[in-house]
Amino acid sequence: MAKVLVVDDSNSIRDMVSFTLKGAGYQTVEAVNGQEGLSKAQAGGFDLVISDVNMPIMDGITLCQELRKLPSFKFTPILMLTTESSTDMKMKGKAAGATGWLVKPFNPDKLLSTIKRVIR
């Protein structure tokens, strides 16, 4: 079962992503900001990271940079949740090592079809 780290400070979005993933048979670990995400990531064994960009304490871009420094996350797909207005944010995400992005607002179907592009 693929294990996904879901990082978002918004409870509702995080719940929704996590619920959708669980429904599709993924295992999820949740974190409310980059720092918590990073510390939960230490456990390893993740097949995918889905992270919001705008978060308190540690944002998604920094999380992405930090994750890429970890050997076990070198090739792990990292999807950023961004908003439509942040084209430069996408680029920043890429520069930080993100695999791709998912544009808000999105729905569960879009989420699942996007995930299929990064994990089997």
């Binding site: 070198k74 792990t76 797909p77 990292i78 695999t99 791709g100 299929k116 592009r117 990064v118 089997r120």
Partner: peptide, 11 residues
């Protein structure tokens, strides 16, 4: 390319 987690085969 693969270091950002992208996998050509999935594309």
């Amino acid at each position: 390319l693969v270091q950002t987690g992208n996998d050509p085969l999935l594309l």
